[in-house]
Design a binder for these strands. Structure first.
Lengths: 138, 138
DNA sequence: GATGCCAATTAGACACAGTCCAATCCATCC
DNA sequence: GGATGGATTGGACTGTGTCTAATTGGCATC
């Protein structure tokens, strides 16, 4: 999937490819995340989407972000107890979290080797692995 | 530090060793976590502490858990957007999180090798690394 | 034992992220 | 142009966690 061009037309195709009906609001929300390639909280998405004219409701932003997560268009990043971040990068990668600024940075998982993890209990499957390095100014 | 015996007397000593004035409430809260060696949310701690006679207030539970984290007596585990878990195990270890049941299990960090992590930006220091494997019944 | 001090605790108000719900809107199909 | 059904909306609601002002309680000093 090529996300280099984030025109609203392209994004509509991306949504369709993930089985999502591309409405105006959904395209705006996808655009907020993809055009920035940043980690945004739901509130930040709401604020960005509403800088343009039409008011989009809070409920729609939350509904849509959850829908995108379910359809694997974006990923939740849980690093801060006070809010969830949403990540338009769904390829395998990890995160550096600056606990002072709240800024998240990506680490490509291809560069990292992790060995010695235990076997999962039988009947269990991995849904995902998060690696979070918490940093501050030293 | 030997946490094998979790009498309230021993816990008072543990608190003092971490520079914490051991009050009744604080000892009960420490006891709730250490005697179970489990990952508990603040609400679970509150419920356990109040099973015994004296009512301990919600504010005290939150204050105390935050104090314990600050004094490195316990660790926060952030895996669920809706609540923080507190972990009496402060040695280096990672977590398996069952997204269906909400149950957390430890992985000893000594068994795991992680290589290829990038250098931190200059002037930054690591405060901690979290590894969370999210699992479900497959 | 009485007194004063200060930290710890308390109840309750508050803040905020996120969810729920019933009413409305709107794109599509006939 | 209706009818249909999914999407959106505002507003009420929930649950976690924080704040604050008032009270309590342990401890030292007299």
């Amino acid at each position: 999937m090529d996300y280099r061009h984030y025109s609203r037309d392209n994004l509509a195709d991306v949504l369709r490819a993930h089985g999502i009906n591309p409405t105006h609001q959904r395209i705006e929300i996808a655009h907020a995340l993809y055009s920035r390639q940043e980690h945004l909280s739901a509130d930040q998405v709401l604020a960005i989407v509403n800088q343009r004219h039409p008011e989009t409701s809070r409920a729609t932003v939350y509904n849509t972000l959850n829908l995108f997560v379910e359809k694997k268009l974006i990923r939740e990043v849980i690093v801060d107890p006070s809010r969830v971040f949403y990540d338009p990068n769904t390829s395998a990668h990890y995160h550096i979290y600056n606990v002072e600024t709240g800024r998240l940075t990506d680490i490509d998982a291809a560069d990292v080797r992790i060995e010695g993890l235990p076997e999962l209990p039988r009947g269990m499957v991995t849904e995902g692995m998060d690696v979070i390095i918490r940093v501050r100014r030293g």
